[in-house]
Design a protein around this nucleic acid. Structure first.
Lengths: 196, 196
DNA sequence: CCTACCGATCGGTAGG
DNA sequence: CCTACCGATCGGTAGG
């Protein structure tokens, strides 16, 4: 009896994408060959093409998967009845949580998106910009409501997002604090210092 | 009369390194070919090798140049008679200033160092770790002296350094604030929120 | 600084 | 899923 497929997407395709995320993180997108990937998966390079269309397709899947998850969460938070500060904290917490649990995928989306080919590259840039602007709008709303110090919102967004992507350093360090402690400290530094 | 050399290092070599920094930032180290670089410089690929030994050497020069400049500044600040908070602010200001004025070089050192070959890779990792530990020690000193909130110092370092490297987003954005405003806002968010 | 060229490796395809 | 193979491009060298 063949294994039962529990996902709409082929399991083998997901294995390939997962291994690719790891290799792209370690050796970069351009620095990883399809032979490297095939070896990690345990097949010959030519066999990969029964599951994926091209190397470029793998990058597209990884980048847009991450972008969509973060955007979905942002949209849910925006319509909540919470203070601006609570919304911002929730978004940062989700970002950190998602980063820790999908480390390789998020790293690829953060660092390798420049290698997307058109029209995906332009599309990705638009989504990225949109996300940042909406997060900045949340901060500006907090400033207007006197919940947050008067700072430049785009700069605050820049700091928050890059601080989170910097968790890769934490991920690799030997003397890790727990992910709960990390999250708590990041919220203190990134948000509570801004509260009035 | 030939042009007078004002630097110990050949001017042409510096041109090559400068163009390489730009290309490595745009297309990544592995994604930039020696033919791309030659075209940017205005010579044939083979001619580059009269000035540099290898592609790897260019990356080594870029990474260690940035690392040494930052380390030199840190060492000067450490022996100053200033409060811990003042020292940390000074280091962040220098980092931001250096990032803005040497954008491509710092980007390459930040993002492409993984492609260094041994023994340079190990050496670079040690320097990087050393720098972070000494910056963390400064923060811990500030905590002990009750100048700074009780937070996890390595997490604060992680946030600060990655926030600064995130200036690349600012660098590319259309609606830039001035570099002075950026610096001021980053200090407010990264340091003043931590002060007691 | 150039022309000419090297072996190695790249992403990907044909055909079974 | 494999073997066999494609044209293109890679970093780098020889020789002038």
């Amino acid at each position: 009896m063949p294994p039962i497929k529990t996902h709409r997407t082929s399991t083998k395709k997901e294995v390939i994408i997962g291994k690719a995320a790891k290799l792209f993180t370690e050796k970069s997108f351009v620095g990883t060959s399809m032979r490297d990937l095939a070896e990690a998966v345990g097949v010959e390079a030519a066999s990969l093409y029964n599951h994926i269309q091209s190397k470029a397709e793998i990058l597209q899947i990884l980048c847009f998967r991450v972008a969509n998850i973060l955007m979905d969460h942002l949209e849910k938070i925006e319509v909540n009845k919470q203070s601006s500060v609570e919304k911002i904290k929730s978004i940062i917490r989700f970002h950190i949580w998602h980063m820790i649990n999908n480390y390789n995928e998020v790293q690829v989306a953060d660092r390798e998106w420049r290698h997307l080919s058109e029209p995906y590259l332009s599309n990705y840039k638009v989504q990225r910009k949109n996300y940042r602007q909406r997060l900045a709008a949340l901060i500006e709303s907090g400033i207007r409501k006197k919940e947050i110090k008067s700072i430049d919102a785009p700069t605050a967004v820049l700091i928050m997002l890059h601080a989170i992507s910097g968790i890769e350093s934490w991920h690799r360090s030997e003397q890790k604090i727990s992910s709960e402690q990390l999250e708590k400290n990041m919220i203190i530094i990134l948000v509570e210092g801004l509260e009035i």
